[in-house]
Design a protein around this nucleic acid. Structure first.
Lengths: 334, 334
DNA sequence: ATGAAAGCGCTAACAC
DNA sequence: GTGTTAGCGCTTTCAT
């Protein structure tokens, strides 16, 4: 019940607490004999270091915090998997928190992790995070932060991203090459850089095809329900033909569902493409064309970047931005 | 950069640290004037309490730890949502960790949370957790623990569950009533109580129908890939007709996929039912018949039970087990 | 090679 | 109503 401390060990062995502490942390100038003695005694008594006390003293722990919008999205769950893989290998534990796309919750979690003195934080920001103030404050206090996928462009920290512009550009061109007269974009909120970049890529491809007059980009949320509603709105707006480039897979799936309810021929009349290569895209009918994002790799890389600056804070001077490759996955909806 | 402490506030105001501490924690015997003074000064200096120090002193925090097998399963993600909902409302923050179905990882996370002095832990155990030793140790040290869904039967702590036996029993009977000559069970590992109970419910229904000789229960993992493999094995075992009761939705979905690849008529020749009412069960073709588990409600209840014993540890003497209702969702695969 | 002692930031028992 | 002081468990400088 009662906690065993180094004091107990010291008392039992007639040693000072400092010697015990040193033995336990493998301090160089200490005889191997005492080290062994202390360690075996510690084991015997069932000693467990109080890492709270250690954190207080050293003002750090070996814990990495992860903050994402929603863990149930395979993209984030997968990235977390990648983060954990390298974190555990390097002796860190991880804790996860979700913002539920609410900036208030994001701030609470961020501060809580800071107060608990995590060694660093890997984050992908919420849809409602229009200002980077809450992150900026912590960065100014020296907290190690790395972003993946959704980031703040004005924050100069390490990042792992994909080339959102190029991916959207490529997919738009591809859809046009399949014979669609125009492409409509179901986009996310523009203060998120990934949404803005995807939209820019779309617009660029349309412009290059001489279709600037046909550019039509809706701005909405990033959930399945948003895609569902947007599809309905598109039909109501009188658009009966064209290809839809959705900002992500959930939006694409929602749109597809609505189009199917309207008995619209896919991909005959309307095409649909998503973003992420969510496993579900392959299980539904028709199977969704999408862009593969290497989420596992993104997570791994983010963890590596973070551990790099934890181990050597001077590396924060010139933060890296790593851009990972995407791949078009052509299936049945385009 | 440097942390502002109560010392700084005390110095600026010519007060003692204890007065400042008392003012900040709204101690009763203190003039409102000093309280206001201290609080405004704290705000002015950008003071943030060091909760590590507070944890060290009080050996607790206002943090609830959550440990689940895999966050990407909607069942767990949904339960976590429910937990967070009530936790935040009551002033707790939450941290999440996943075991990836590995008992080693589960133990690491469990210990890490304990060492970080969380107020309590809500857990659903991993598939490979055959012994409850690691949990037992912490419970003996006084750590507050609540289980939901997957639990250790030998641990006498608060739990939130469904009636697994009854649900499996009911679904088996229903399948038989639809004209299937027999039901085959795709079960999970039997050291998990939920798997054992579901299997028992299945066996009971078969026995009551005079089909004890036809009882066939495979034992496997709980992933989609396990269902896929099991379906293949069933075919290879020469079973061409009957209904499959899967231990959960992923297994059912995997089995369904394999049956479809074999061009087996569903539900004409073979029926399939899952467990959980995962959203995907409605998006695939044919839509999967399943049992709805109230995951949000399970999470909420677990959080309430935990906060109850945190606030009043004497309640641990007679831990509650809450059983929540399930519902059969009949769709196209049975 | 080992010990004594200070201190991380906070709370609370004890004084006045 | 407010101040003094000890101490939570640990690390680390300074002695010896």
């Amino acid at each position: 019940m009662k906690q065993i401390t180094i004091k107990h060990i010291a008392a039992e062995l007639n040693l000072s607490v400092s010697t015990v502490s040193r033995a336990l942390t493998d301090y160089p100038n200490l005889s191997q004999a005492t080290k062994d003695l202390v360690k075996s005694k510690a084991k015997e008594l069932g000693y467990r270091p109080n890492i709270i006390a250690r954190s207080l003293k050293c003002s750090t722990s070996d814990q990495i915090g992860i903050i994402v919008p929603e863990i149930r999205h395979i993209f984030f769950a997968g990235a977390i998997h990648g983060i954990e893989e390298v974190a555990y290998k390097k002796g860190f534990t991880t804790i996860i928190a979700q913002s539920n796309e609410e900036v208030e919750r994001e701030e609470i979690n961020l501060n809580s992790m800071y107060l608990h003195r995590v060694s660093g934080i890997i984050a992908s920001i919420s849809q409602t995070s229009t200002s980077s103030e809450h992150f900026k404050k912590l960065i100014d206090r020296g907290v190690n932060i790395v972003f993946f996928d959704r980031d703040f462009e004005d924050l100069n920290v390490p990042k792992v991203k994909i080339d959102d512009f190029a991916a959207a550009y490529k997919m738009t061109k591809f859809m046009l090459s399949r014979g669609f007269k125009k492409v409509i974009h179901f986009g996310g909120h523009l203060h998120l850089s990934i949404c803005r970049l995807r939209r820019n890529g779309y617009e660029q491809a349309m412009t290059e095809a001489g279709l600037e007059k046909e550019i039509l980009a809706y701005e909405s949320g990033m959930l399945e329900s948003d895609g569902y509603l947007l599809a309905e709105r598109m039909i109501k707006d009188g658009i009966k033909e064209g290809a839809v480039l959705a900002v992500n897979d959930p939006v694409a799936v929602g749109a597809l569902r609505r189009f199917k309810e309207f008995n619209i021929d896919i991909p005959g009349k309307v095409g649909v493409a998503g973003f992420s290569n969510n496993p579900i895209t392959e299980m539904i009918t028709p199977r969704l064309t999408t862009i593969e994002q290497p989420f596992l790799e993104m997570g791994r890389t983010a963890a590596e970047l973070l551990i790099e600056i934890i181990k050597d804070p001077s590396k924060k001077e010139n933060p890296k931005t790593v851009i990972l490759d995407t791949k078009m996955i052509i299936r049945d909806t385009v």
